[in-house]
């Protein structure tokens, strides 16, 4: 049976891992390669590296980081941040990344999703979407949640699937940093309408939150950062809890 995936997310800035509360107030939590290796040993199923400053500073994610991770880590990983065109993605995939994640570049130019899928295959493209609930509707946000767009989240995800996104990484900006649980209602609503994998992000605070998101929203994977980085949730214990609750996991 296909296992539900647990994905630690490493936000990277200047080659160091950081995690902010609601994406501001950055704190340093270590060397990304060392942290990645620790997670692979603990039983993480996959890793996501996001250069969270890349989008507004227009910096390219470092190819060196991707090469170092691909050389030392024996599980799959995704790299995101600052990927604006085909050549950016090409360089990162050739450096050993398994998947690339795009966010605002795709909102600005949705055609990018078609181009990426055609060039690399659908399984290489993860569309990251930051969403926030405003005046009764879910809207796509850009720049780490700073800027609202006029695009409704449900519409954008559906369009992205049709264009060739291989997977959706949905972060609820309302839940991110709160540690009050994932946005299970929205995640379930989205998951019921798409036929590609959905990764839940934003709000993980304890093990029960992971049980809830898998049981209530049936997502394929759940992503978190600080609860893992600061040892508040240990992956082997989390997997045991999920198993006891009847959720298929790799142990």
């Amino acid at each position: 049976m296909l296992a539900k995936r647990i994905i630690p997310c490493l936000d990277v800035k200047d080659g160091r891992t950081v995690k902010g509360v609601n994406f501001v107030d950055l704190r340093d939590a270590g060397d990304p390669v060392e942290l990645a290796w620790q997670y692979s040993q603990q039983g993480a199923d996959e890793l996501v590296f996001l250069d969270i400053t890349a989008t507004h500073e227009r910096r390219k994610t470092t190819v060196d980081l991707v090469k170092a991770v691909a050389s030392q880590i024996n599980i799959p990983f995704t790299i995101g941040g600052g990927i604006n065109e085909l050549s950016d993605a090409d360089v990162l995939l050739n450096a050993g990344a398994d998947k690339i994640s795009i966010n605002s570049a795709a909102v600005r130019n949705p055609q990018l999703l078609d181009e990426f899928a055609k060039a690399f295959g659908v399984q290489f493209v993860v569309l990251a979407v930051d969403t926030r609930f405003v005046d009764g509707k879910n809207y796509v946000h850009l720049r780490g949640g700073r800027d609202i767009t006029d695009i409704q989240t449900e519409d954008w995800i559906k369009e992205a699937e049709n264009r060739g996104a291989g997977e959706i990484l949905l972060t609820s900006m309302d839940h991110d940093g709160t540690k009050n649980g994932f946005d299970n209602g929205l995640l379930k609503k989205i998951n019921d309408t798409i036929h590609i994998p959905l990764i839940a992000s934003g709000g993980a605070g304890n093990q029960q939150h992971f049980v809830d998101v898998f049981q209530q929203a049936q997502v394929d994977a759940a992503l978190a950062a600080s609860v893992f980085h600061y040892g508040e949730i240990l992956i082997p214990e989390l997997k045991e809890t999920l198993h006891v609750n009847g959720i298929p996991v790799r142990r």
Binding site: M1, L2, A3, R5, V122, Q123, G166, D220, R250
Partner: peptide
């Protein structure tokens, strides 16, 4: 009926 691609860890 499952999602395509088949992506992730399977036994």
């Amino acid at each position: 009926a499952e999602k395509v691609p088949h992506m992730g860890w399977n036994s």
